[in-house]
Every structure is written in C-alpha cells, then in structure tokens.
Write a protein that binds this DNA or RNA. Structure first.
Lengths: 172, 172
DNA sequence: GTCGTCATGTAACGTGTTACATGATTTC
DNA sequence: GAAATCATGTAACACGTTACATGACGAC
C-alpha cells in the first residue's frame, strides 16, 4: 500500500491488513514482482544494507498504476466456495451426532476468537495514522468480516439447537 | 451421496446439492476416481448403454468408507480467503466513490438473487424424498449459506450508508 | 442446422503452497 | 544454544480450470 516496497514488505502488509479476505505467499510474490518488472509495470531499486541482505525495493510505474486502476473498476470475480466444514456437516449422516456437534463447537470457539481479533483491528485502525478515506475503506473491508463472523456464530447456535432437537425427537 | 455413481453423476450431485460451499470440475473428478480405484478405495463397473456412451459406475469399498469416515471426523481445514470484491473495496482510495458504490450495488443485487435461490432450495429439500437425518444436515449446510447471504446484504447496506456519509461530510 | 445433454477422458495451462537454501542478527 | 526475524529466491509438487476430442440423441 502506497510507496515503494520490497516483496517481504508486501507479504507483511498482506498479513496484517488484508489477511481476512486475501492471502498471498512469498512463493507467489517474488516471481510476480519479477514478471511485473519485465512488463514495465514496476521498477526495481536495490537498497544495500549492512549485516542484512540487500532489499529490492519496487515502485509502481505510471502504466502500472493505470492498469491497477482499470483492474479495480472491473467487476470482481465471484468467490469460489471451498468450505470443508460445511462439506463435513453435509455428510453428517455418516458420523455420530457427537462428531458433528464437535465440528460445530470447534467452529464456534474459533469464531469467538476471530470476533475479538476484529475488535482489536478496528481499534488499531483508529489509532494508526491515515486519511479518513483510507480508514473508511479499511474499516469497510473489516466490517464485512465482522458481519460474516456474526453470521457464522448465529449459524453455530442454530445448528446446535437443530441437532439437539433431532436427537430428542429420535429418542422419544 | 449413497449408491454407485459415475463421474458424470458426481458432477451433477456437486452442482445441485453442494455447489453453495464446494465446487469440483470434471477435470478433477475423472483422474481422482482413477486414482481411488488404484488404491482400492472404489471399484469400477462398466455399464453398457445403447446409443449412449458406456457408463463407468463406481462403488466405494469398505476400506474407502472407513477412510471417508476418518476424514469426516478430523477437524476441517480453515478457509482460505480470496475475496476479490473486498480487495477492491479496500483499495477504494484509488477509485472514485461511484466506482466503489458500483461494486457494492452489484454485490447487493447478486446476493438478492442468491437469497431467492436459497429459498427455492429449502423448499426443494422438503419436497424430495430422504430420511429426516439426511434432510437435517442438508438444511444445516444450506442455512449457513443463508446466514452468510444475510450478512453480505447487511454489509452492503452499511457500506453504502458509510460511503454516502463520507461524501456528505466531504462536500460540507 | 445448431445447441444442449449424455458420457468419457486427456492435455495444456495456470495457480498456489511448501520446502529448501543462504546467512547474519537478535531474542529467549 | 535454539529459535525467530530479516531478506532473497528456486524448485518440486499439488491443485484446478479450460479447452479439446469423440459421437449419438433430442429439442427448438
């Protein structure tokens, strides 16, 4: 985000700012930067350091910025679903009800942790420097995660109740 | 799901039953079935048909079922996030507010369509034959989608309001 | 006549993760 | 003394999609 960055810097940015909705590994970033340089979308500058490996700092070129903006305005690709937990719940008939409940309880406690993380992140945004516009969009992206998180927790409650209901009607 | 199936059958099952949280292409399914057969987790049976290509029908072996059950009870892998729309919103500072709003409005109308689809699916489950247990888990998996859908729509409303708010405070 | 469905599969390509390799410095 | 951090990168592998190929049938 804004300003010259090395591949390593980018990875850290991804992790702390947008890991909630996007992940990228170094094995992708380094080759990508090389490719972008070949296409003149970024330029490289080697910054020598003492007692530390050289940093290769990249800056986006005007044509790179143009391409980025064009990409930004194009409609986003739909999300591809790959939710292993739901797949397992779907096949719940092949397990004991306890095993299914286990999955749900695990998701629930995981999501309770996520909820706290979001709270912390939102406070962080306020504390950090940045323009109101920057903060607005950062918060919006976070807010989406918060809504999804809430939805997951609501589902956990509902799912637990539905399974308990089923068990009771079964034993009657 | 239950009973011998061909690769083609599987693809259709994936599409109509679990496409909301899992996708799989034929280019994955056919090689996978071959591999599973080599490992004795499924057996193949060729069913000749007239005026139609032969069907290769696969049945899960006992050891395949055991492995499947073991897999089911193991904790699910966490979801990897790749939400292009949120990534674009996050970089909203590089676009006009209108362009950002466009993305949100598009998501909103898409999700309104999804909402109707979920309603239809839930009615379908009731209409179709199946054990109460089978229906329970199918509905639970669907319910998750419904919650997430609702969360997305709520976020759209919130996001639109936040951006409009920002615009108003800007022009003052 | 063209398109979609049934039914299989391969091959090319693109995407993404993980492990490995280097090597000094700092922290526990 | 071990592990994490800084910083780069490559290579092997695994995962996934798409296009292609075949060929008959039925619907429009």
């Amino acid at each position: 985000m804004s300003g010259p960055k090395s591949g390593y810097d980018l990875k850290k940015d991804f992790e702390e700012q947008i890991s909630h909705f996007w992940t990228e590994s170094l094995g992708q970033i380094y080759p990508a930067l090389k490719k972008l340089e070949k296409e003149n979308l970024v330029t490289q500058k080697v910054v020598r350091q003492e007692a530390r490996p050289d940093r290769k700092v990249y800056t986006v070129t005007p044509s790179g910025q143009q391409l980025f903006r064009d990409w930004l305005e194009q409609p986003a690709a739909p999300i591809k679903w790959r939710n292993e937990l739901l797949l397992k719940v779907f096949f719940g008939t092949e397990m004991s009800t306890d095993a299914v409940l286990n999955h749900i309880v695990q998701l629930e406690s995981e999501q309770k942790g996520v909820r706290q993380l979001y709270q912390y992140c939102e406070d962080e945004i306020d504390r950090r420097p940045g323009s109101p516009e920057r903060k607005l969009y950062w918060k919006l992206a976070l807010a989406s995660g918060r809504h999804i998180n809430k939805a997951r927790l609501a589902w956990c409650r509902e799912a637990k109740a539905a399974i308990h209901d089923y068990i009771e009607n079964q034993t009657e």
